[in-house]
Simulated assay, not measured.
Amino acid sequence: MAAQVETDVAIIGAGPVGLFAVFECGMLRMKCVVIDALEAVGGQCSALYPEKPIYDIPAHPSIAGGELVAALEKQAEPFGATYLLGRRVEGLAKDGEAILLTTSAGDTVRCKAVIIAAGAGAFGPNRPPLEGLPGYEASGAVRYMVTRREEFRGKRVVIAGGGDSAVDWALSLKDIAAKVTVVHRRPKFRAAPESAAQLDAAAQRGEIELAIPYQLHGLKGDGSTLESVVLATLKGEEMAVPADHLLAFFGLSMDLGPIAEWGLGLERSHIAVEPSTCATNIDGVHAIGDIATYPGKLKLILQGFSEAAMAAHAIHPRVFPGEALHFEYSTSKGVPAA
């Protein structure tokens, strides 16, 4: 059923940065509505790597993506945000001083400010051009993400790709899978140097097999159950690797969707913002996290968290015009009542 909502701030994107924006707005007594195309909060952390460890969250030497999202949900919970999930924002229009958002589910959200925390927009995996791929995707034999490591216990797993996801999951699954084979077209990986070094060490110990320089060439099986993955070199040399699963990590294809039609200042599919306020070229609209760009921008979750705080403070005068905002540390002010 379509919702008609009036609120202070509409947050587009329910990933980690969007969830933290709920907290930051709540600390300034601003009510929020959060809209996301996915059916659950967490963005890429939940959809792509809920069990994958993240190492650059302050005070957490290591925390799984799903655990981080759960903690951010709990942190935002006291502020009673409304979540409109499983729909995407289609339209943005000004209504006097207010902003009107419309969604694919027919919702209308009237707010005083908007925070776009949409990551890099809608995303989907880059699929390898292999014959019969849809049937193996449907059965789960070919996947582009790992949600539960236990599903691969005792299985033969082929991992294709040369970035962080491929290397990290190879290292993570080697202890539970019957066999892990990593396919890459060249010896040098694009992963973090320490992770690449661990992969080399695991290969030398026989814990992981490296198929280099090979690329994916075909799938063998009955169209649903996978028997082997066919690899080939650029010279046409082929070999078949017995496998129960193929994990293909070739990155994500990004699509800003309707956001690209709103008249925002775009730079290479990112939204240009003013660094100190994260304000866009549309009055009352701010962008934070991976979708925002400015000189010196770092694509780190912790930078997105900082941007959430800056945007919330910049928005406060729109929600409470004429009211002075006296900054206080959370240790002294506590969490305001919802």
Score class of each variant (00 low, 15 high):
T225I: 10
E227K: 13
V229W: 03
V230K: 05
V230L: 11
A232Q: 14
A232D: 00
A232R: 14
L234M: 10
K235R: 15
G236P: 10
G236E: 04
E237S: 15
E238M: 14
M239W: 06
M239A: 05
M239F: 02
M239L: 14
A240I: 09
V241E: 04
V241K: 03
P242M: 11
A243K: 15
D244H: 14
L247G: 14
A248L: 11
F250A: 13
M254I: 07
M254N: 13
P258S: 04
I259R: 05
I259N: 08
A260G: 08
E261R: 14
G265I: 00
R268A: 06
S269W: 09
I271E: 03
V273W: 05
E274V: 14
E274A: 13
P275G: 00
P275Q: 03
T277Q: 03
C278T: 11
A279G: 04
N281M: 07
N281T: 05
I282Q: 05
I282V: 07
D283N: 12
G284F: 04
V285D: 02
V285Y: 05
H286N: 07
A287S: 09
D290V: 06
T293F: 05
T293K: 13
Y294Q: 01
K299R: 15
L300T: 03
L300P: 15
L300Q: 08
L302I: 03
Q303V: 11
Q303H: 14
G304C: 06
F305E: 05
A311R: 10
A312T: 04
I315H: 03
I315K: 10
H316K: 15
H316L: 05
H316T: 01
H316Q: 13
H316M: 04
H316A: 00
P317I: 02
V319I: 05
F320D: 00
G322W: 00
